[in-house]
Design a binder for these strands. Sequence first.
DNA 1: CTTGACATGTGACACGGTGTCACATATAAT
DNA 2: ATTATATGTGACACCGTGTCACATGTCAAG
Lengths: 207, 207
Amino acid sequence: MPKQTFLSLPEDKQNTLIQSAKKEFSRVPLHEASVANIIKDAGIPRGSFYQYFEDKEDLYYYLLNQVAQENNKKLNSILQEKKGNLFEALLEQFRYMISLRHHEEHNDFLRYAFLNMNHRKENTMANNIYKESLKNERSQTLEMVDPSFLNIEDKQELSHVIRIVGAITFHNLVQVFVHDLTDEDAIYNYEAQISLIKKGLQRKEVD
Amino acid sequence: MPKQTFLSLPEDKQNTLIQSAKKEFSRVPLHEASVANIIKDAGIPRGSFYQYFEDKEDLYYYLLNQVAQENNKKLNSILQEKKGNLFEALLEQFRYMISLRHHEEHNDFLRYAFLNMNHRKENTMANNIYKESLKNERSQTLEMVDPSFLNIEDKQELSHVIRIVGAITFHNLVQVFVHDLTDEDAIYNYEAQISLIKKGLQRKEVD
DNA sequence: CTTGACATGTGACACGGTGTCACATATAAT
DNA sequence: ATTATATGTGACACCGTGTCACATGTCAAG
């Protein structure tokens, strides 16, 4: 989390720093990015940076969380539009996610995020929908899913379903960036996999 | 890949270095580990290290690949034992993987590996079974799966199935380390999820 | 307006880690 | 014994980090 000092900054100064940070995080993956480059580009002294953020990671996850929040808003609206149909919403959301590659000015930010998608990043990204809702308050999004579409018997199974589709969705997003898939191929693969888990992977016994 | 120089080293010297490396990689995650610590512990000069390996990562992925290979052997034998039944093999393999936490002397090596499981690590770990076999030679393991257990129509769907179960398996292994799950809980969750995708996530229409 | 107290800005610096390179030493073939 | 080739060695230049002592700004009370 940014320190109060940063949040009190005039908006344009915040934006300058954020732009420079996105630039650096789009140039190289997190562990290669340097505070030195960010402050040079933003034109602020080194000491100031550390008044605003704990360190590189602090700033990085702040940015990533912003992306995640926009994303979550989008998902909420899609789920509403699809009247709680999880599968339809997932496909629509997936299309939206990969379309971001083309619109975003700093699309490489997302690219590096997914190429090095570790647990912490995944949690930051998915926090709002896929988070383990064991003890936490259930997320608004989770509540929007209509379980009558699903082959489940209780809330716990819903939680498993969410984890399953979350894992598959992330895996597919990573593949998009790893193999530079076209939108068509990416969607084709994702639809195929979602379709498979919908109908079940196990062959039905022919009586 | 280690350089030839390393592979020509007397075995005990190789082992000393490997032990020291595992120690360091068990102490902290990859990006915090330092060559300095490894060579200090192994008692070799800095210059030598760079004669053996390109850098820290080179050594790290060499070790990880060794783990992956052992793992793959295990899976092969399980698949054979289970006569190609993918689901049974997966459960058995999952049990084996989490049991490693208790046996391995350097179990934290695996712990940090899974906590920071990014695409490259996942590929290294899963290379032998989950690898995209599009143009590559299909892996021995993949061939051992008996498709008659599966609700699929062609090889491409088999490939999707492998990706699906791969994504879910990894996700569950990460959860084990993130939340320090007991073996029982971990297996319970994994079985629940595998069971769900076997029978299908979508509610069957009642005619 | 002046003072003081507190918040924020600043950049030089100490520290620690990396990868290299010139030189030393071993090995082996002629 | 000589030469060539491979391997060992550690001092060193380089780079990035996070901190700290000091400078500058802000603002309320007298």
